[in-house]
Design a protein around this nucleic acid. Structure first.
Length: 648
DNA sequence: TCAATCCGTATC
DNA sequence: ATACGGATTGAC
């Protein structure tokens, strides 16, 4: 009967394939036995090119434009509508923006199904949320107005520069609660599990129990899918999570927020490499929501949003800052060390010792930020200073303790009898001092004071308030009730000499994140940064002025024509493949080619640059050309990354 | 002239 | 991965 009334029942399916030329919908006949249950957004299995593939039903229709014979939908995996229209639109926009496939983005957006979890009884709808006290937001200019606006269901957009010592998880929870009390949903994205745990705790305190879920890969597949279902079924409308949570299908979304957008963890490492920040901002545009981008520092991208007046700044007045900020002093390293033999021996200028001593005397913990992990991660020959290498594989030698023989970081073999191949020397010296060695030295200098280390695979979330030495690598600094008495920022050069466009921005981000954990100056809080006080990044730290630094960075990016002022794409692959891809691509007029530069002996990397206004065309051209190439199975693949966060 | 085979290409 | 169509080849 369907045949007479305009065609058969058809499901239009996005098939799960990474091939760019298959980035379109395919029609399948809906067999009568599935017709009752199949819905847009359901997962299905279909026979595609001879194999069973999974896919999402994008829409149901009567009839097809396809000339050939339709295959049946092989199986309805589940009647659960896990892909909502809003997330479909978002995923399509993200795919277009990053020159990728819809199916690749859907794989990031919708977590893998867990049949057992679907069968569980549905979660009770979350109890209503009452608007919280938002007093603390008054410390920021327009902060109170921002919260009021959220409470009225409007869509304010803000870049928030958090004060040192700020309890940002609580402020985020207040913004979430205010939005929820107005009847709208919330998505909060943080860089890692540690921050998520902090935010989770604050949300429970502010909202009450059962009002929100956390969503992160660290939960494991079952818990993650359970939380996802609670959201997609509409039982919960407040989500806090790591980068994939930017796609959480929250109903009636009213606010998207991100903490510390400068953290690399927000960049998705799988194709098409979307940045969670871009996902959230795209979503805010498509769905019309409020936006809150918060951090102790301001990213260059944030600065552009402010300059174009897309968002407004939430910044504290100078007098509030003076009340809350620690006393921050720079200590030039080399010259000082030369004058101070005792300090030179331990590699720490005397100011750092006195700051630590004062804090410990007041029974307060001292945070030492040291950017290199390990004990002595790099050693060199004492005589000729050449890097000490493994005699077996030429890998770099490192020391893991004061007593253990040097060990290769590549093959793990020990070299108890080091002999320099250049000069024959047998003695080693530390080329780079790691956090573990620093902890060792400080522990000896302050006997009886506990030394705690945080970094690598042993990260501490928090430490108790009493006298202690806390040695942490950047990003692993434990929080402490009341704040640290002193914060020592060591080895600035290791951060600043990164051959990275974002080295300055990244250094300031890491310093401020650590310095923000210190007590206010009037409460004795002191930060010592071992770096040349003349550097702009050090100036920005001393004055606690991330806005000034972000404006400088943006101006520099503009003069270099780098993102976010220009749109760039990085192409990585064998040289012929890169040429081939460019031959098939109609790039927007005025697109520049930079490079290529060799990556390894088979691979080169080429950068393309185009004005930001032509970004969409650049992505479309690259996706199109990748599609033309991928139809030929002989073609070597080229990795396409739009605005990759690690540029050179 | 036709069938067997090869190759490239689309994949519902 | 596999199935199909068009081109190519070789036998009659």
């Amino acid at each position: 009967m369907d045949e007479e009334t305009g065609g058969i029942r058809v499901a239009r399916v996005c098939v799960d394939s990474p091939l760019p030329h298959l980035d379109r919908l395919f029609d399948y006949r809906v067999p009568p036995e599935l017709a009752e249950q199949i819905r847009p957004g359901c997962r299905v299995k279909v026979r595609f090119a001879g194999q069973a593939l999974s896919g999402f039903v994008i829409e149901l229709a009567q009839g097809t434009d396809f000339g050939g014979r339709l295959a049946d939908v092989a199986k309805l995996v589940s009647p659960e509508q896990v892909l909502t229209p809003e997330i479909l639109r978002l995923a399509r926009a993200v795919a277009d923006r990053f020159a990728g496939n819809l199916s690749d983005v859907l794989r990031l957006a919708v977590p893998p199904r867990q049949a057992r979890i679907e069968a569980e009884p549905a979660r009770e709808p979350a109890p209503p949320v009452t608007a919280p006290e938002g007093e603390a937001w008054q410390a920021y200019e327009r902060g109170g107005a921002f919260l009021t606006s959220l409470g009225m269901g409007h869509n304010p957009r803000a870049v928030w520069g958090a004060l040192p010592g700020e309890d940002w998880p609580r402020r985020f929870a207040e913004a979430a609660a205010t939005t929820a009390a107005a009847g709208r949903g919330v998505v909060l994205v943080v860089p890692d599990q540690r921050d998520l745990d902090l935010l989770d705790r604050a949300l429970t305190e502010i909202l009450g129990p059962d009002r929100h879920v956390t969503l992160s890969a660290a939960l494991g597949p079952a818990k993650r899918y359970r939380a996802f279902l609670a959201v997609s079924r509409g039982a919960v409308r407040i989500v806090a999570g790591t980068r994939a949570a930017a796609f959480a299908p929250v109903r009636d979304l009213g606010l998207v927020a991100m903490w510390d957008a400068g953290d690399d963890s927000h960049a998705e490492p799988r194709a098409p490499y979307p940045h969670a920040r871009t996902v959230l901002l795209t979503r805010a545009q498509l769905t019309e929501t409020a936006v809150l981008l918060g951090g102790f520092t301001r990213t260059t991208e944030d600065q552009l949003l402010l300059d174009t007046e897309w968002a407004r700044p939430l910044t504290a007045p100078r007098e509030t800052l003076r009340e809350r900020a620690p006393h921050i002093v720079p200590v030039g390293d080399d010259a000082q060390l030369a004058k101070d033999p005792q300090a030179a021996a331990a590699r720490l200028p005397s100011e750092t010792w006195s700051a630590a001593r004062a804090a410990l005397a007041a029974d307060r913990p001292v945070l030492i930020q040291s950017p290199r992990r390990g004990y002595i991660p790099i050693v060199s020959c004492q005589e000729c200073r050449s890097r000490a290498r493994c005699p077996h594989c030429q890998g770099p030698l490192a020391l893991h303790s004061a007593t253990a023989p040097p060990q290769c970081r590549w093959c793990g073999k020990q070299s108890p009898d080091f002999r320099c191949p250049t000069c024959g020397g047998t003695r080693l010296r530390a080329a780079v001092v790691g956090a573990a060695r620093t902890a060792d030295e400080l522990g000896r200098a302050f006997p009886g004071v506990p030394v705690r280390t945080s970094g690598g695979d042993r990260v501490l979330d928090s430490v108790p308030g009493g006298a202690a030495l806390v040695v942490a690598t950047p990003g692993a600094e434990p929080v402490v009730e009341g704040g640290y008495g002193a914060v020592l920022l060591l080895d600035a050069w290791a951060l600043l000499t990164r051959a990275d466009l974002r080295a300055g921005e990244e250094t300031l981000r890491r310093w401020m994140a650590a310095a923000a954990l210190a007590r206010p100056a009037r409460d004795g809080g002191k930060v010592v940064v071992v770096a040349d006080g003349g550097l702009a990044v050090v100036q920005a730290l001393l004055r606690w002025d991330p806005a000034w630094f972000a404006a400088r960075e943006l101006a520099e990016r503009a003069s270099l024509r780098f993102p976010p002022i220009a749109r760039m794409a990085s192409l990585t692959g064998p040289p012929q493949a890169l040429e081939d891809l460019l031959r098939h691509a109609t790039l927007p007029p005025g697109t520049e080619e930079l490079g290529p530069v060799p990556v390894d002996d088979r691979t080169e990397r080429l950068l393309l640059r185009t004005p930001r206004t032509h970004g969409a065309e650049l992505a479309a051209a690259l996706h199109g050309a990748s599609g033309v190439r991928s139809t030929k199975k002989t073609a070597d693949p080229v990795r396409v990354q739009v605005d990759p966060s690690e540029l050179l």
